[in-house]
Nucleic acid binder design. Sequence first.
DNA 1: TATTGTTATACTCTATAACTATA
DNA 2: TATAGTTATAGAGTATAACAATA
Lengths: 147, 147
Amino acid sequence: MPDRENRLEEAQRLSRMLIGSTERAKADFAEIVAAFGLPAHLARAVLALNTPAPMRELAGQLACDRSYITNLADQLEERGLVTRVPGEDRRVKLLQLTASGRKVRDQMSEAVAERALVMRKLSAADRKTLAPLLEKLLDGESCAGSC
Amino acid sequence: MPDRENRLEEAQRLSRMLIGSTERAKADFAEIVAAFGLPAHLARAVLALNTPAPMRELAGQLACDRSYITNLADQLEERGLVTRVPGEDRRVKLLQLTASGRKVRDQMSEAVAERALVMRKLSAADRKTLAPLLEKLLDGESCAGSC
DNA sequence: TATTGTTATACTCTATAACTATA
DNA sequence: TATAGTTATAGAGTATAACAATA
């Protein structure tokens, strides 16, 4: 039945393009932030620290374990980009950008805003078309609900 | 300068949606093929073996190292889904689906064609709109060319 | 007792390098 | 000499579990 074959091919083609775009976007990001001496995972953390945040919270934002945040924090501290400051609740430590960290964040923000793949390759109209399509893909239940 | 902040936010929002969609699509695929007792990486290999292929070639298609293909082939052979058959060039081994492997591939093809995220969540019209946008993202030089 | 961050450790995925058998 | 597949090993990235301090 060629119809099923066609649907499979369309599914594979589109899925592969989606995956490929994401890989490209990630590689692009990595390349942009490498100019600031940061690997992607550290850069993401810096960009997330717009305001000082408990490590716990950062773990939520970056969708990773608390223990891994300890890791990131160590690396960022070594580079002089953040400091750990005690929270009111004395169990909590806030990660706060240093002056140097803020500078890096500001420059990185600008670079990413200008050169991120989705901004470079797509017009404003394209982006306006793309967003709702991606929202549909993200919307509601995953396969778990229907399979 | 709020304009730059806005552009950064748009870039981040769209990038995150793109990445999220891909993650969702991958998770979906994993869930679909799990019904056939296969982890995603083995399922991809089975779907790629439409016709018997040298391990080298499969490494190309799956974008991974030859040594990793040896791994996959071992696991697929253990499950009775493929056999290694000698090529004309006696250095080469072709991976060929067994009868059982073909059956799994056919059933998986059907399941993926029906239930893949991009097919379930998007109309035919949506997919027709999405494809050229992703092509733009994939098109031409990466950041290396312009940064 | 529950929660924060830390530590030590383990695991998954994949690649690298050295090896063999062919060519 | 170069190539296909194999083997053993190593690394990146991240999680898990037990722990100390605090709530």
